[in-house]
Design a protein around this nucleic acid. Structure first.
Lengths: 147, 147
DNA sequence: AATATTTTATAGCCTTGGCTTCATTTGTGT
DNA sequence: ACACAAATGAAGCCAAGGCTATAAAATATT
């Protein structure tokens, strides 16, 4: 029964959206750690596992594992019992991520989100902001600034 | 050397941001599946595992596992070889998620993101939009509409 | 009614990103 | 120089969220 109600094959609503979101998520941790390492080197001259872990809110073994993945992906280098450093590629990623983060926070604030909340939300948000969207944000901020 | 450059303990930049982002991520899948099940029931009268899987862009065993988790969390119910249904709590979650999704897409479009891109990005974005930010988005959209 | 197809379930594997626990190395302070 | 504290590393556990392959049940077709 209800042959008519169902019949139609599920309207192929694009699963690409979800696959894309999952891909973005896979990059997120790399991005966060790269940026964090970059910050630490800037602020304190080196990035130690302990500091990375404490700032990321994880235990050191977890930070060590993440760094191992960064190394595997060619984004960082380190020698046992020494600090962690970024490769050129890693540094570039960190810069891009930092810039994007700022833009996202600025946009949130521009549309009326309290700065503290903007900082919090941006942390998760930013990884899903595509190039196209980022450019749109920049244009919006420029226009708002010019006004 | 460079005792002065380092010395200071890592300025306790709040790790809560990351912990919060991780928590949001843990909810994301539940939210996506709940909404998808709700959509399917609305459109076709029932939510079958095969359709859920195809729309989410995963294999059926993966969808089955996700549904198992939904059931475990009290958001859905189902009997073997029968469709999946949402509990009251699950339906409520789905409604909230759907509304938030729309608001996020609308806001993105309002600041100049192309609609298609807005749809894509919203899929990952939405899970990290806090209540406070959502309210800000709504206010912004209201103001823009009134103008 | 018997058979074929489709759908669902189950088992088992992999990777990721958390964790704890224990061993080792480094670096500090006396 | 030695002893102790702190940092790093290594091993192993867990849950989540993917997957493939196989089995069983439900549905459709002849």
């Amino acid at each position: 029964m209800t042959k008519d109600a169902e019949g139609a094959a599920p309207p192929p609503i694009q699963p690409e959206r979800f696959q894309q979101a999952r891909a973005a998520q896979a990059m997120a941790i790399l991005e966060d750690y790269a940026e964090m390492i970059s910050d630490l080197i800037e602020e304190m001259g080196e990035a130690r596992i302990t500091d990375i872990a404490s700032r990321m809110g994880v235990t050191h073994p977890t930070a060590t594992k993440a760094v191992a993945r960064l190394k595997r992906e060619g984004l960082a280098v380190s020698r046992p019992y020494r600090g962690v450093f970024l490769t050129d590629e890693g540094a570039e990623l960190a810069d891009r991520v930092r810039a994007r983060h700022r833009t996202v926070v600025d946009l949130l604030v521009a549309v009326g989100v309290p700065p503290e909340t903007a900082e919090m939300d941006a942390e998760g948000l930013e990884h899903h902001v595509s190039e196209v969207t980022l450019k749109a944000f920049e244009r919006y901020l420029d226009a708002a600034a010019a006004k």
